[in-house]
């Protein structure tokens, strides 16, 4: 016997998509503010502004601009995690840590989409090797970056590294291994502990592609004491 009355009283949510676009993006138009449905401020960035950021940083910093963007992403990801945690916890009335993994990921994917950052998918096939593979499409950053000039989604990589570091309590790094700005159909990222991503970076510089880097990572153990 299943009691529907008890099901309705259980702590498990009947709520759907907190990040549904029409509900999530609100605003006080009188004051010129765009806000989330819980009142946190949002701003719309024109593509031309992002193009200017890439051009300006490249002009001033050259190759170091990638590192700057990655660190900006890390900083952004830290705040993004706090906001995400606060909003999701408040809406679903359950701490993030107690949320089922699949519900958490569904929220994250919808959040990514509603912010206009394209789509995001997770592949946990490499989780036993300590890696999460992430794919994004329609990245606004890849679209604004100069074409064919190298990996361009350092901001996203930084956000992902920082967000999942906060979530897991581990110090994680994230490496982009394919990019829409270089003609790839999607942007690929590998997320893992810093020692492993460091090795992956070397292989990337040696010219290995996404699949081959994953194979190499799976076949290589890290000596944590080393």
């Amino acid at each position: 016997m299943i009691s529907v009355g008890d099901l309705l009283k259980s702590r498990k949510t009947l709520k759907g998509n907190y990040f549904a676009p029409y509900a999530y993006v609100q605003g006080d138009f009188e004051l010129g503010l765009l806000e989330t449905r819980l009142g946190a401020r949002l701003i719309a960035l024109p593509e031309v502004f992002l193009q200017g950021v890439y051009e300006g940083l490249q002009h001033e910093l050259g190759d170091a601009s990638s590192l700057v963007l990655y660190n900006c992403g890390r900083w952004w990801g830290k705040s993004f995690f706090r906001r995400f945690q606060q909003e999701v916890t408040q809406y679903y009335e359950i701490p993030l840590a107690q949320m089922e993994m699949v519900e958490f990921l569904s929220c994250f994917k919808q959040c990514w989409k509603t912010h206009g950052w394209g789509t995001i998918e997770f592949n946990f096939d490499y989780y036993p090797h300590g890696l999460i593979v992430i794919y994004t499409t329609n990245s606004p950053f890849a679209a604004a970056a100069p074409k064919g000039k190298g990996f361009a989604c350092q901001l996203e990589a930084g956000i992902l590294a920082s967000f999942f570091s906060q979530l897991t309590g581990e110090n994680l790094d994230c490496l982009q291994t394919s990019c829409e700005s270089m003609g790839a159909p999607l942007n690929s990222f590998i997320l893992g502990i810093q020692e492993r991503i460091k090795m992956a970076k070397t292989w990337l510089q040696e010219g290995h592609d996404h699949t081959s880097i994953l194979e190499l990572l799976c076949n290589t153990q890290v000596n944590k004491e080393g």
Binding site: G16, N17, Y22, A23, V102, L105, S106
Partner: peptide
């Protein structure tokens, strides 16, 4: 679609 079904997709898959 937007308020529930999209969000439910991965959950149904699991």
């Amino acid at each position: 679609q937007r308020h529930l079904l999209e969000w439910l997709t991965d959950i149904v898959r699991v």
